[in-house]
Amino acid sequence: MKTGTGMRSALGRARGLGAAGGAAHHWIGQRVTAVALVPLGLWFVFGAVIGNLGADDVAIRAWMASPLNATLMILFVVSAFQHGALGLQVVLEDYVHGAAAKNVAVMANKMFAAAGALFCVVCVLTLALGG
């Protein structure tokens, strides 16, 4: 891989490069996170949420101290925020008109995803390692 455009061939990157040239990267990223979120989403509902119904502080810490649970939770939140950011960006580009408003909206979207994912990861690590 020579540039940030990822899985595209040299010809694919050069041909018709009118816009930013990142559409294929965006499209593939959306699908990769979608595939990951099928098992991770089912695990989150049935394992993480239903499995911890009525749990107290001690129980949730013990549950998150399992390396498998902490790993799956981090994979879930990172995939989910990445997938959501890619998806909402397309919606914003479709429905927010005007270059300035669109750019501000897309940037705010990316910052929300980065901050949300980081906060969730820090929380998981605090629970798993905090003792």
């Binding site: 107290d56 502080d57 949730i60 989910a80 909402l88 906060f119």
Partner: peptide, 26 residues
């Protein structure tokens, strides 16, 4: 999709955040 990302993620943030902040919040 928008609902899950804009509202649903706030539930996850609240749930994990409260757990990390301590017994009372959780």
């Amino acid at each position: 999709g928008v609902a899950l990302y804009v509202v649903g993620s706030l539930f996850v943030i609240a749930w994990l955040g409260a757990a990390a902040y301590g017994a009372g919040a959780f």
